[in-house]
Design a protein around this nucleic acid. Structure first.
Lengths: 122, 122
DNA sequence: TCTATAGTTGAGCAATCATTCAACTAATAA
DNA sequence: TTATTAGTTGAATGATTGCTCAACTATAGA
């Protein structure tokens, strides 16, 4: 039987697997969970979000802070906006961004404490 | 002046930016933070990790649970291992995997409660 | 010893993604 | 009205990445 076998025969501990399957959230939930972590899993976006966890900032200031272009930042902000991770308000020409809800800040904190608990370099 | 200007001229609120810059963790920390979220930000890996948060499981059982191949799972487990997100023990031919530390479980929980707080579909 | 199976690994491929570039809108100031 | 600037956007591109395939190791049982 080939390696591609999608094990129903190659199953070591059926009872355990069944129990875990019953405790697994629905497909849609897990996909959204992965999507949420993915959006935090980029150096540029994590910098943007950490900055916004300190202060409301406009696109230009974020670009300045990260030493990159307004275009690059704007593309990332659009993504973050579409996933309701950040919100914005307009003041004339200037668009101010901030975190959309407190869970995002919590995730950043929990992630940071995970990093810190690991000590210096893997 | 071109759009590529990496604003030192195009700076709206210099004081704010300075304050945020002072509160920004070092480059290395932010990169590791992004890397941590990134590793959680994939449907297959998030499924693996959620399963392991319930039970210690072998490669074959995980493959069965996720209806995929042992090879695909093994590749992902190698990545998770290299980032010290999971650990393993060998029992004869069988390799059992489990979460490496409690922070990973915490992150999954916090992420899930963020999802749940959002209500049904964006 | 011989066979079967759990798991790993490297190469290759198709898909995804972050950034750049150029063109655009909208608001301000002269 | 005209020039300037904040910000957005679509297309193109180079890099990354998740999976498949095939070959491999190692352990267990006959």
């Amino acid at each position: 039987m080939s390696e591609r076998t999608v094990c129903s025969i190659n199953l070591i501990n059926e009872a355990k697997v069944k129990a875990v399957r019953n405790a697994t959230p629905h497909e849609e939930i897990l996909l959204r969970l992965a999507e949420t972590f993915k959006v935090l899993g980029d150096p540029t976006r994590v910098r943007i979000l950490h900055a916004l966890s300190q202060e409301e900032l406009c696109v230009c200031d974020i670009a300045s802070l990260l030493s990159t272009t307004k275009s690059a930042i704007s593309h990332q902000l659009r993504l973050l906006r579409s996933l309701r991770v950040v919100k914005f308000r307009k003041d004339g020409r200037i668009v101010y961004y901030s975190l959309d809800d407190s869970h995002v800040g919590n995730l950043l904190c929990e992630g940071l404490s995970h990093i810190m608990s690991q000590g210096v370099s893997p």
